[in-house]
């Protein structure tokens, strides 16, 4: 999984655009898959590899924006670059707020586009990596005992061991022992690290 080659998906109903984009993007040395409509893209089984989606906003049938919304609804996270024409900029801006990576306005600077594709792929890779780590941390957290999870909550709130002990009406030592077990189970070494990871994981869980 880690070593899987990235794929660039191009969805455009204009054959010339599809063709030229494929030529251009494939020169980056990545695999390119093209689709002539949003529907055909959705119908295809997507491999779980890093990549990015180049999406034309205006298309017959389902538009790029609708496809994007569908993907978000389905929880598919793929960096998406909207290719916009004249007058579609406001739509594209709205799209980025929803999590699209970027948009380019036709005609565009190919180098910049390729750069963004590269960035998108990199980001996808890192996203995929961080989400993998978050998933692992979440699994570790699941192994915590209720008391350890309670202690983790107070740690995240920034309480010291003594404050926690007072809250729980336990001895400071007991609290420290829970805290140590919790740190061990979560395979972290510092309080800061456990707080960051816990918050990140919780944020991604809230979102998902």
């Amino acid at each position: 999984m880690k070593n899987a080659d990235p794929i660039v998906f191009i969805v455009d109903d204009d054959p010339a655009m599809r063709d030229s984009m494929q030529l251009l993007v494939s020169r980056m040395g990545v695999e390119v898959r093209t689709y002539d409509s949003a529907e055909s893209y959705l119908d295809d089984n997507q491999p779980d590899v890093p990549g990015c989606l180049l999406l034309d906003i205006r298309m017959r049938g389902m538009t790029g924006m609708e496809l994007h919304e569908t993907l978000i609804r389905q929880g598919v996270r793929i960096p998406t670059i909207f290719i916009t024409g004249f007058g579609d900029v406001p739509t594209a801006v709205r799209a980025t707020r929803r999590g699209a990576v970027d948009f380019v306005e036709k005609p565009f600077d190919q180098q910049a586009l390729l750069q963004r594709i590269r960035q998108a792929i990199e980001q996808d890779k890192s996203d995929r990596e961080s989400s993998r780590q978050l998933a692992e941390f979440a699994q570790l957290m699941a192994r915590l005992s209720p008391r350890e999870r309670e202690v983790l909550e107070f740690v995240i709130e920034g309480m010291t061991s003594r404050q926690i002990a007072q809250r729980l009406s336990r001895s400071e030592k007991t609290v420290k022992a829970h805290r140590l077990h919790m740190m061990k189970k979560l395979q972290v070494h510092t309080t800061a690290e456990v707080v960051r990871k816990a918050l990140t994981t919780r944020a991604s869980q809230d979102k998902g």
């Binding site: 030229s20 030529l23 251009l24 020169r27 024409g85 004249f86 007058g87 579609d88 036709k106 565009f108």
Partner: peptide, 22 residues
């Protein structure tokens, strides 16, 4: 019709641009 037309013209222009870049 302007925006639609601009799009229509941009379409081949963008493609040309791509081919040339290639």
């Amino acid at each position: 019709l302007a925006s639609g037309l601009a799009h229509e013209i941009n379409q081949p222009l963008a493609a040309i641009s791509n081919y040339v870049q290639v």
